[in-house]
Write a protein that binds this DNA or RNA. Structure first.
Length: 438
DNA sequence: TCTGGGGTCCTAGGACCC
DNA sequence: TCTGGGGTCCTAGGACCC
């Protein structure tokens, strides 16, 4: 049996823990650059503010109803998430941290010694709320997909008191008949449209399609697994996370710019900044990468620009895996020069690190020692340099020591830097930001 | 005037290998 | 007339998730 615990309106709930004045009011949290709405309080949902809505479209509505809009504060949400996950890990045999606000639980064998599953789930919710201030809902079912269904319905129907268990045929059928197919985990906009065209409207109807049909129309084996999971046939196991963190298979850092950019040196400043951050995450995870991607995006809302709006280029590092910022930067410069076209107007850039593995496994040496390596000090000194860099930035704040290309002269912000006008404090992760109570 | 960021998995064609 | 089969890796792109 799987459990799925999900924080209600997670980002908004995190903000409310430290700003009780936000209770009972419409509150939204905005994406980077204060661009889109990414989390909404129940009151904001009631105003009809959609998930992902551009902020400029809802600003006036929010103001009319004495609402609040906050810039996203990932330092706070990440730390609150860690606390929630730690409470969960204390109460079940295994936890899979699925996202910042969601975890799958292994509920196997929990009924025998500890009362009913429902009682356990209620206790878990109370504990998380008491220890972290975050309200949650719990879904329970024999497959992950059904646990998501149960969680979804538990959120939707207050009379369920935040909990739903789908472990009998009749409960499964009732739940699936009540759920629009577009709300099934794994059915996005495209598939929802296609299913509607075939007259499939509820999760129950989707659970009834044939294997051949699912494979043909829903992305091959992925679609077939989805259907089987809806039928109660598990196709995905629990992937337990250690210490409440998930080891990633790829690491990405990308940002929309504060303004449109055309000069390659401005783009290089952005790429340098993002790659430094990605490499820092890579080292924190204890891995090296051997595949590097750089991408540049143009404005996808400009009707004069035909797709593709994003162009990327990927390199398998000829010198083998590394986590060394300067070595990665040397390759990234080449990729950027390959991608860049003078005259194009760019709105966003990003980097992706793939092929992650711990150091020391089968290092590939280059036959021709590419120029990029000439700049790299011997391996031991290189590692020490990165360790020192990470220590300094941890101690004195992110970006204290960084590659020169990521620094702009003068005091004005870098041309690629975005906006965040409504950011709350890092209450739980910075001494200077600790909440004061008078 | 304004439209996010970081992940996962899968597919498909081409290069290349034996 | 008639041009193999089976595998891997690379690269790019598409769909989905929160």
């Amino acid at each position: 049996m799987f459990g799925l615990v999900d924080g209600n309106n997670f980002y908004v709930s995190c903000e409310r823990v430290f700003q009780p004045r936000l209770e009972g009011r419409p509150v939204v949290v905005l994406s980077n650059n204060d661009g889109n709405v990414v989390s909404r309080s129940a009151e904001a949902k009631q105003l009809g503010i959609a998930m992902g809505a551009p902020y400029f479209e809802v600003r006036a509505l929010l103001r009319r109803h004495q609402g609040h809009a906050l810039s996203s504060n990932y330092a706070l949400y990440g730390d609150m998430s860690r606390r929630v996950m730690a409470r969960l890990a204390d109460q079940v045999p295994a936890v899979e941290v699925y996202s910042i606000d969601e975890a799958f639980l292994d509920l196997h064998g929990l009924t025998t010694f500890c009362g009913t599953l429902d009682a356990r789930a209620h206790r878990m919710r109370r504990d998380v709320l008491a220890c972290t201030g975050i309200p949650t809902c719990v879904g329970m079912a024999p497959t992950k997909t059904l646990a998501k269904v149960a969680n979804r319905l538990a959120k939707q129907y207050p009379e369920l008191q935040g909990i739903l268990r789908l472990d009998t045929e009749s409960r499964r059928e009732r739940a699936l008949r009540a759920l629009p197919v577009a709300e099934v985990w794994g059915i996005g906009r495209q598939y929802a449209q296609l299913l509607a065209a075939h007259g499939i409207r509820t999760a129950w109807e989707l659970a009834g399609v044939s294997e051949a049909w699912a494979r043909k129309h829903l992305g091959g084996v992925v679609g077939w697994r989805l259907v089987q999971e809806l039928r109660g046939q598990p196709c995905q196991g629990l992937l337990p996370s250690e210490e409440g963190t998930l080891a990633r298979q790829s690491i990405r850092c990308s940002r929309s710019f504060g303004q449109r950019l055309t000069a390659i040196e401005d783009l290089w400043g952005a790429v340098t900044t993002y790659l430094s951050r990605a490499a820092e995450k890579l080292r924190a995870q204890g891995d090296q990468a051997h595949i590097l991607t750089v991408f540049l995006s143009q404005d996808r809302y400009d009707p004069r620009l035909p797709p593709p709006h994003t162009r990327s280029t990927t390199l398998t590092l000829p010198s083998g895996p590394t986590s060394h910022t300067l070595q990665l930067l040397a390759y990234a410069r080449r990729l950027l020069e390959k991608l860049y076209e003078p005259g194009r107007v760019y709105v966003k850039a990003g980097v992706v690190l793939d092929g992650l593995e711990p150091p020391g496994r089968g290092q590939q040496l280059s036959l021709f020692a590419p120029a990029a390596e000439a700049a790299i000090p011997a391996a031991g000194r290189a590692r020490q340099l990165m360790r020192t860099l990470d220590d300094l930035n941890r101690q004195f704040g992110r970006g204290t020591v960084r590659p020169a290309a990521a620094i702009t002269t003068g005091r004005q912000p870098a041309p690629w830097q975005g906006q965040a006008h409504h950011r709350s404090q890092a209450y739980t992760t910075r001494f200077d930001d600790i909440l004061l109570v008078f």
